[in-house]
Structure formats: structure tokens, C-alpha cells
Amino acid sequence: MVLGKCPYCSGNVIAIKTIALGKKVNLYTCENAKKEHDESSQFVFSSDSTCTFRVYSNVFLKWNKRSFSKYEMKKLLEEEQIIVRLHGRRGTGEYFKYVITDKEYGVSILWDEEVSKKEEEEFLISS
């Protein structure tokens, strides 16, 4: 399934079902970001890979967000920045942060940018 254009090479970003750390997840990857196992069984980019854009759907699990959905990835590729809802350590409190694409990590949370109450309300209404 094509979700949009890669922010770095304009190739198609596709969703692939895979297993990471023993869990079924979606991998959102540029069609030009090809990986393979090398002789030491490490998973590395292949010699014909021309891009490195890859994001796993469990990327925000550390902040108690179970999945980064296909819809959220598609919206991020279209708008270059989206709001995500994250949760505190015990899953009790929630907070909202902006997310952008990142060349090295796939996506990054903008910790220093505050989401306004109005944008939080709009997010809650639209989701």
C-alpha cells in the first residue's frame, strides 16, 4: 500500500507487515531503502539502496503509544508535521507533541514545541 512520497528521495513510501522484536508491526519504508542480511547476520542497507527512510509502527511505544498508524504516516508525509497523543509512564496522563520526519531516525518528536490547547481540541475532534 502506497502511503505517499518519501521526504528525501520522492520514492513511494509503502507499508509492509513484518515482525520486530517478536511483535507483528507495520514498517513504513521508502521503496528505495532496501535492506539485507550481511555475512555477520546484521540487517544492513543493500549496495543498491539509495534511501534510508524507514519507520516502524511501534516507534512511540516508549511513550505508551501502541501504534503509529498508516493514516498518521500518510498525513505526516502530506503535511510534514503532525500531532500525536502520548501517555505518561503508567498510562494515566496524556500529552500532545508534534512529530516530524527525521533523516536519521525516520521520525522525531519536537519536545521543545508546545501544542496549543486549541490544536489539542481540534486533534481530539478529528480523531
Score class of each variant (00 low, 15 high):
residue 4 G to M: 09
residue 4 G to K: 06
residue 5 K to I: 00
residue 6 C to L: 02
residue 6 C to E: 05
residue 7 P to Y: 06
residue 7 P to L: 04
residue 8 Y to C: 02
residue 8 Y to G: 03
residue 9 C to S: 09
residue 10 S to L: 13
residue 11 G to C: 03
residue 11 G to V: 01
residue 13 V to W: 01
residue 13 V to P: 00
residue 14 I to M: 04
residue 14 I to E: 12
residue 14 I to N: 03
residue 15 A to L: 08
residue 16 I to W: 03
residue 20 A to V: 12
residue 20 A to F: 06
residue 21 L to N: 12
residue 21 L to Q: 07
residue 22 G to W: 01
residue 23 K to V: 01
residue 23 K to F: 01
residue 24 K to N: 13
residue 24 K to Y: 11
residue 26 N to S: 14
residue 26 N to C: 11
residue 26 N to F: 14
residue 27 L to Q: 14
residue 27 L to G: 05
residue 29 T to W: 00
residue 30 C to E: 05
residue 31 E to G: 01
residue 32 N to Y: 12
residue 33 A to V: 02
residue 34 K to Q: 14
residue 34 K to S: 07
residue 36 E to I: 11
residue 36 E to V: 10
residue 36 E to R: 13
residue 39 E to N: 15
residue 39 E to Y: 15
residue 40 S to W: 11
residue 41 S to R: 15
residue 42 Q to W: 05
residue 44 V to P: 07
residue 45 F to Q: 02
residue 45 F to K: 03
residue 46 S to K: 10
residue 49 S to E: 07
residue 50 T to V: 11
residue 50 T to L: 08
residue 51 C to E: 09
residue 52 T to E: 11
residue 52 T to R: 14
residue 54 R to D: 03
residue 54 R to Q: 10
residue 54 R to F: 00
residue 55 V to T: 01
residue 55 V to K: 02
residue 57 S to A: 13
residue 58 N to A: 05
residue 60 F to S: 04
residue 61 L to I: 11
residue 61 L to T: 10
residue 62 K to V: 11
residue 63 W to V: 02
residue 65 K to N: 06
residue 65 K to P: 00
residue 65 K to D: 01
residue 66 R to H: 06
residue 67 S to G: 02
residue 68 F to N: 07
residue 68 F to A: 07
residue 68 F to W: 10
residue 69 S to L: 07
residue 70 K to R: 15
residue 70 K to I: 08
residue 71 Y to E: 15
residue 73 M to P: 02
residue 74 K to L: 01
residue 74 K to V: 01
residue 75 K to C: 07
residue 75 K to E: 13
residue 76 L to I: 08
residue 77 L to R: 03
residue 78 E to P: 00
residue 78 E to Q: 13
residue 78 E to D: 12
residue 78 E to V: 07
residue 79 E to T: 14
residue 79 E to S: 12
residue 80 E to D: 14
residue 80 E to C: 08
residue 80 E to T: 15
residue 82 I to P: 01
residue 82 I to T: 03
residue 83 I to A: 06
residue 84 V to W: 02
residue 85 R to E: 15
residue 85 R to T: 06
residue 86 L to P: 10
residue 89 R to V: 05
residue 89 R to N: 13
residue 90 R to G: 15
residue 90 R to E: 14
residue 91 G to A: 09
residue 93 G to F: 09
residue 95 Y to C: 00
residue 96 F to T: 01
residue 97 K to A: 02
residue 97 K to S: 08
residue 100 I to G: 02
residue 100 I to P: 02
residue 100 I to M: 13
residue 101 T to K: 11
residue 101 T to L: 09
residue 103 K to P: 01
residue 104 E to R: 14
residue 105 Y to K: 14
residue 105 Y to W: 11
residue 106 G to S: 05
residue 107 V to G: 03
residue 107 V to M: 05
residue 111 W to D: 14
residue 112 D to T: 09
residue 113 E to T: 09
residue 113 E to P: 00
residue 113 E to S: 04
residue 116 S to W: 06
residue 116 S to P: 06
